[in-house]
């Protein structure tokens, strides 16, 4: 049972993102949207935690939300995949269930 975890809160502001990482299981996918997109940046106080989670989970970010906050894709942690809205829909279809960490 693979699950898609959707996060929309900045990891620097709320514990929602951390809570998501603490509950996601190996093989799950994590999608960062809206303010959570800034969490894709490398070299932050959060990036090591996310990299650790990426050992056994796939991490995605909605490209439009990243660009809107002035973060260019070359500043991202290696291995995070950028998706558009169609990719977002695909992720929901590919996974058995979806949980939003609002």
């Amino acid at each position: 049972m693979a699950m898609l975890h959707i996060v929309n809160k900045s990891p620097f502001e709320r514990v929602a993102f951390k809570s998501c990482l603490d509950h996601a299981l190996a093989g799950d996918s994590i999608l960062m949207i809206e303010d959570a997109a800034v969490g894709a940046t490398d070299g932050t106080i959060f990036s090591e935690e996310l990299k650790a989670a990426m050992a056994d989970k796939s991490v995605y970010v909605l490209g439009g939300d990243l660009a809107a906050r002035g973060v260019s894709e070359d500043r991202m942690i290696d291995g995070i995949k950028v998706v558009d809205y169609a990719g977002f829909v695909n992720l929901t279809v590919e996974n058995d269930t979806t949980q939003s960490w609002v």
Binding site: V38, G64, D65, A67, A68, G70, D84
Partner: peptide
């Protein structure tokens, strides 16, 4: 601080 970052593009949202 993200409010005043350079090169924001909202085309995608």
């Amino acid at each position: 601080v993200y409010q005043i970052t350079k090169e924001q593009s909202t085309d995608g949202i």
